[in-house]
Design a protein around this nucleic acid. Structure first.
Lengths: 126, 126
DNA sequence: GTTAGTGTCCTAATTAACTAGGACAGTAAA
DNA sequence: TTTACTGTCCTAGTTAATTAGGACACTAAC
């Protein structure tokens, strides 16, 4: 895995797993890769993966069964869509609005986003 | 200044100055605070500020006159609106679209952004 | 009980970011 | 020329992230 600078690796690993939960690649109750397995897979140290898993456990999105492994907790997806959305609305969106202002961006610049939002809305109606 | 975790301080200082350039608080030709002055002001080491300034110099948004100080380069604002916009479109927007999808966000969640974009467009027309 | 997989704890070492502050050189004005 | 700024280079030390890998305990299956 290619890690970006400027963000800690263990957070990036957490983000990757969170994304897999949100997209449904990982479902509630699913076993996530073992610490050692993922470490080898991502070419990273065991302890770094451990740190990601400890973080996710603390966030309540995975459960830990000693000697067996980590599992996606039953309410992980619901909790994540809630929490991540709140973080986005409160922290990212204000920055985004400000950036749109100072960079004098226009609606056309956000076409892709609009399209996605409309798609979400249509799926919601059905 | 309160620095957020997860992002290097010298980058945050750079971002702060870039924002001041984009908002017009700092104009082309303006002298930016001296390395020592800003270091004291932000309660940070000289070397950390130096690193921010070196980064900005490398980006071509400030000019350095030894023994005098750093100055906002004449084309800083133009260059920044171009570059930052490109970075946004190519790097941030795709992530944003993806996040909007997995979090099933709706147009209403982005009302503040829409309002700002419309405002930009109206200013553009005048 | 042995084996193979799991998480967990531990010490040791490396690296980058940041701090601390001395020392020196360029510049402008008194 | 002196003074007071300015940037610049330097060594030294701290901290957090990461690596490396040994050692141990838990669990399931054979």
């Amino acid at each position: 895995m290619e890690f970006s600078e400027g963000k800690n690796i263990y957070v990036q690993i957490r983000d990757r797993l969170v994304d897999q939960i949100l997209t449904g690649m990982l479902l509630p109750g699913d076993k996530i890769p073992s610490v050692r397995e993922l470490a080898v897979d991502l070419e990273v140290n065991r302890n770094t993966v451990m740190r990601s898993y400890a973080l996710m456990e603390q966030e309540g999105i995975v459960d830990n069964r000693r000697g067996i492994g980590f599992f996606v907790s039953s309410n992980a997806r619901q909790r994540l869509t809630q929490d991540e959305k709140e973080i986005f609305i409160k922290q990212e969106l204000p920055r985004l609005v400000h950036q749109a202002k100072v960079l004098k961006m226009l609606p056309a610049d956000f076409k892709d986003l609009f399209d996605q939002l409309n798609e979400n809305q249509n799926e919601n109606k059905q």
